[in-house]
Structures are given as structure tokens and as C-alpha cells.
Design a protein around this nucleic acid. Structure first.
Length: 273
DNA sequence: AAGTTCCCCTGTTAGC
DNA sequence: TGCTAACAGGGGAACT
């Protein structure tokens, strides 16, 4: 569910609530959430203090006074920072008990999310971060030509290529539709037809969409919350995703599929070729 | 080897 | 109303 802006809003909430707190106990109800051995994870994390919260692409990184937790929310993962024993439901799979009498609950209805413990960590380097492509909000010095080469190497639809996290990271199904609309590119256009000036637009509008959505607290269409009970409001800013009529030209928005993902675009503003 | 499709899960909604 | 199929902010394995 969450894409880069939503993960960033979650990161800020976690930073506000967790930094300086010590994890005193952990309860894991659904072990597949944890990568590797669960008791090892618990042993590694218990007694550690949270010193910082970072993000790369759609990954959250909890820096501990020794070691790190990497967390990916996938479709439905959510964090709730809340008083101990004040909430319990069958979708809360991991609970971190903190030394301030609060707990950090990880809820995940679809159980797709994952957490990793890493003793040492380097951005873009330590698995699973080693497969993360350029995060435009973090890395400004990168080779646009290298990026362009990667994109035009593929004959797949440009939407599919932009969803590939190993090229540009952070775009998901909502923002990719928005970026392609703003760039006036048809989502089904083969990636090898993309021009350098298309790429300029893609990069510009990706950053613009991310920045604006973060400012509005992320996009809540179905169930996204950045913390317990807090939804986002960027859905009011969307141009095509889940929309019926183009805000620019009034044409009926087409909804079809790109590799199985629901795809929204304006057939007039985003003509093929 | 690149480009699809399937699958991991559960809940909600659309369609008959 | 009630069943069933399709769908949902993701990504990796297993296909072709």
C-alpha cells in the first residue's frame, strides 16, 4: 500500500515517538513477518535503544544503539505507537514494548510486510537495500545518462519499468500513474521509446509528486494511516489515479491493466506516441 | 535472458 | 440477500 511519500510520513511519526526509547520486550505473533530466526531477532533487538529512523525508497530503517531493523510495509503494514495493553487485534503481529510504558505495534492485515535485523548497515549496500535503485529524495548526485540507459534497455511498458524498484525507488501504483500523466506519457508506451526529455519530466514530476504528497500526509484511498487514526489527504490532489474525468481536458479517464496492476490515464493528454 | 504471470494473505466491493 | 469473483499504495519466485 504505501509508496515513498507514505513511508516518509510514517518515518516522521516514528522519529517523533521512538527516538531515545529503549525496546524492553518483543512479542512476535506471526513469524513470517521476521526474516530469519525469530528468537535471534528478538535477542538482537531487546535491550537496544532507538537512536534514529531513516528511509530508503520504501524501506524504513530503525537505527539502534547497536544494530538496525529494516522494515518494509508492503501493502498493508502499519505502525501504532500507543499505551501498553491499550489495543489488541488479530492483525497486530509484532509488538515492541518500550521503556516509556508505550508499545509500538506492527499491524499487517495481509501479512506481506517484512522485518530484517542487520548488525551493520550501508545504504544501497546491505541486503535487502542492495537492490534499491536511486531514491531521488536522498541522492541528488547520480548519472542521468546511466538511468536513461537502464530505462531504454527494456521493451516493457514504461509504467512497469518505473515500478521496478531497482531503477528508481519509491514509485508505486498511484504515483506512477500521476507522474506519467503530468509527463504526458502513455503508461503502455514501450520503455525504449522514452526520450531524454521524457526522462527529465519523469524525474521532475516524481520529485514534485513526492514532495506534495508528503506535505499532505500521504494518499489515503483505502486504508493507509501514518499512525493510529491518522489518514493522509493527498488523494484530493490526484489527477488520474481512481479518477473518472480528466481535470485538464474533461476526457473520460481510461482504467485498464499494466502487468496486472490497475492503470489510470487520460487518452487525450497521454496519447501513445 | 527478459518479460510475464502467479503467489504470498485477508478484507471489501462489484457483479450476477 | 447471498454467493462468487475481482480487486487492493508490493515484490519475489517461477514460469515462458
Amino acid at each position: 500500500m504505501p509508496e515513498l511519500p507514505e513511508v516518509e510520513v510514517v518515518r516522521r511519526a516514528l522519529e517523533k515517538n521512538l527516538v531515545g526509547k529503549k525496546i524492553v520486550d518483543i512479542n512476535v505473533g506471526y513469524t513470517n513477518i521476521i526474516d530469519g530466526d525469530v528468537s535471534e531477532f528478538i535477542n538482537n533487538v531487546c535491550g537496544k535503544k532507538v537512536v534514529g529512523i531513516k528511509r530508503l525508497g520504501k524501506f524504513l530503517i530503525f537505527n539502534l544503539d547497536k544494530g538496525n531493523i529494516i522494515s518494509h510495509l508492503r501493502m498493508e503494514g502499519k505502525y501504532f505507537y500507543i499505551k501498553k495493553d491499550s489495543i489488541n487485534n488479530k492483525h497486530i503481529h509484532v509488538i515492541f514494548f518500550l521503556d516509556d510504558g508505550y508499545m509500538l505495534c506492527y499491524q499487517d492485515v495481509r501479512k506481506f510486510g517484512r522485518m530484517w535485523y542487520k548488525e551493520t548497515l550501508n545504504l544501497y549496500n546491505t541486503a535487502p537495500l542492495n537492490k534499491v535503485g536511486i531514491d531521488l529524495t536522498i541522492t541528488t548526485a547520480y548519472s542521468k545518462n546511466e538511468l536513461y540507459k537502464k530505462i531504454i534497455k527494456s521493451k516493457s511498458a514504461i509504467k512497469t519499468t518505473l515500478l521496478d524498484q531497482s531503477i528508481i525507488s519509491g514509485l508505486g501504483n498511484i504515483y506512477v500513474d500521476e507522474v506519467l500523466f503530468l509527463s504526458k506519457i502513455n503508461p503502455h508506451l514501450p520503455s525504449n521509446k522514452i526520450t531524454l526529455s521524457d526522462l527529465d519530466n519523469i524525474l521532475k514530476y516524481t520529485l514534485e509528486c513526492f514532495r506534495k504528497s508528503i506535505e499532505f500526509g500521504g494518499t489515503t484511498i483505502r486504508s493507509y494511516t501514518s499512525e493510529l487514526g491518522v489518514i493522509g489527504h493527498n488523494q484530493d490532489n490526484l489527477y488520474v489515479h481512481t479518477k473518472n474525468i480528466c481535470r485538464i481536458c474533461g476526457t473520460k479517464i481510461i482504467k485498464d491493466k499494466t502487468n496486472g496492476r490497475g492503470t489510470y490515464y487520460c487518452p487525450k493528454c497521454q496519447k501513445q506516441d
